[in-house]
Write a protein that binds this DNA or RNA. Structure first.
Lengths: 203, 203, 203, 203
DNA sequence: AATGAATGAGCGTTCATTCAT
DNA sequence: TATGAATGAACGCTCATTCAT
């Protein structure tokens, strides 16, 4: 029906929808645990408790499951972010930054390992890249919009660019330490990040 | 003689050194263009204009070429960074940040796309991860050391944490736009980044 | 369910069992014709009329097919030998030796060329060696047991050692001429062998 | 000059002859230790202290070294056997059999592991097979000739067939236990073998 | 709709042999 | 003559995908 659905089944019955869901769950678990390239379709099918063939009945190929999982996550992410931001129009500046950081941490909180795999894939796959860019853009706009609500208190003028820089800083600060037990503990990292952003933004 | 050379040829003659170099160049080009997983050894050999067997005469396997390239790049990187920092002990604050950014941009300037591939691989390969972490640590210490020379002018106290946050911010701001023709142009990105760092660091 | 099946398919349906069988047949044919080292997995698959991948669906690797074929043959061998021996408890001495020779010839009769390949492999592969040794031991014990039923007629005392020597003599006499159209014809070879064994064993 | 020398160097100078010898020695050592298939030409050259290219200057290919080594060994073998047999024209029967066994044991004594590798190769390579057959034939004729010198004492008539059967029995009895620490010790094996042969041959 | 057996292109890697120096 | 770098066909094996049942 939809474009890009490529002959895959579009389940409307309860059973089909469940099967589809089981595959998505299994795939997400395996991608997160072992990475995209070390996960194979047979493994996903087995983990989902279905036959290999069923996998291809519901999904065009391995990558399309990956993209679909990512879409789902991002959707939740953006909604959560928007929700979080909405409630703080009358908060103090420091709180705002804290909420922003929380929301972004939570972004990864949903599924840090899967997010990591996205960071990997976005460089080697155009589709993942495109999707990632659009999510990034969405988050950035959300931040910019939030900044727009308190313009008079801000020292920055170029809200879009500021949002971009903040988002980048947050992402990397959040991502990097996942890899190692870092010499600098979490509190020091986050308080410095929050401090940097506050000073940057506010008069 | 180096450890971990695993039966590979260690060329001393001109011809051998050239071949080794041709393979490294080709590998770097292909890794950068298509990513590690989409590059195969046959392809590298072909691009280098040598036979498959020659690849394995000089390198243990695909990954070891990758690591060797990365080692070379990082070595240059750290030296350059240290050099750049050395000359600015009596510069003004803004200049310092500019020089830091330049050095880090240049870091990627060496081979932006390969760096990108490193970011990819560090998540899925422990050796790449370890090497990347040690480079990151080196850069961070270099920044912290530089900050230490002008303590009285700084508002931040935790120099290590500050260095970490700054480095992360820079890396992501520099990396991300490589992927897309970005809506926010380079100047806006960089001036905001510089501004953020300056406000963060200095009284 | 058997141990050592290493992720391989364990077919229960007719189709799968057939495929497995086709692969075993083809492998046996090729091993016999060209030897283990000159037979490759692609060749086995082609000869079996299946894809390379199917080979690896049913067998861990090339060697495991070899061992499985050998196991099958040996099993039949030992059973047949035991059967043949059972029926002759009241036979004359010459007949006994004749029956023994028949059973051992038949041993090879099952698949002389494959047996030859076993003789080859046992020297270079520990698993083949172990299996071969256990078969050899089994045959030897069978002979010793048979000898034990007519002790009073025998001139040999060390039944185990006698069984060993007889078995060796038979094996080599049977094996060797497979290689060439021998100058000494089969009847001369076998009658001398039988004569030697009889004189050795009986008063 | 000679046929089958295929463009290989035919050294007459001392240096060349030495090099050739070093290669033969190294090859023999490696073939014996690791088997033909697990020995590679690079390894032989390295062990011989010469360059890969030199290997091919003196030998057509890997197999031809193998054959040449085997030829050398067999030559010595046959001569030794003939020598041993010559001196015993007036010995008693038991002694004769003992001498024969000694000579054949010694056959393998020269280089048991290389002999083992011959047993392997003769099945898979026609050239090795042919050579092996001609050696076998030579040994057999030597035995038959020896038997011919004491006809009146023998009960066997078909000397050629008897020689064949004896040789086979000896070979296998000698070979087999190389593989395992045998349950039946050497003395029991050999005395039974000698007994069997004596009873077979003599009135 | 669901199964899982079958497919085969493609991978990383080895090594006997050749050839430029 | 001697070197050892270079060659490339061939290997064992994997796995995303298809298709007969």
């Amino acid at each position: 029906m939809e474009l890009g659905q490529h002959k895959t089944r579009n389940p409307v019955q309860k059973r089909g929808i469940e099967t589809r869901g089981k595959i998505l769950d299994a795939a997400m678990r395996l991608f997160s645990e072992k990475g995209f390239h070390n996960t194979n379709t047979k493994g996903i099918a087995r983990a989902a408790g279905v036959a290999t063939g069923s996998f291809y009945a519901y999904f065009k190929d391995k990558k399309s499951v990956f993209l679909e999982i990512y879409k789902g996550i991002s959707h939740k992410q953006l909604k959560e972010m928007a929700g979080g931001m909405a409630g703080l129009d009358d908060q103090g500046d420091t709180d705002r930054v804290a909420v922003l950081l929380d929301a972004l941490m939570d972004e990864h909180g949903f599924s840090p390992d899967f997010q990591r795999e996205v960071s990997v894939m976005r460089y080697s796959d155009p589709d993942v890249e495109a999707l990632h860019n659009s999510i990034h853009e969405g988050l950035q706009q959300e931040i910019a919009r939030m900044l727009g609500t308190q313009k008079e208190r801000l020292r920055v003028k170029d809200l879009d660019a500021a949002a971009f820089v903040i988002l980048c800083a947050c992402e990397e600060v959040i991502h990097t330490p996942r890899l190692i037990t870092h010499r600098i503990d979490r509190d020091r990292r986050l308080s410095n990040l929050a401090d940097m952003i506050s000073r940057f933004l506010y008069k």
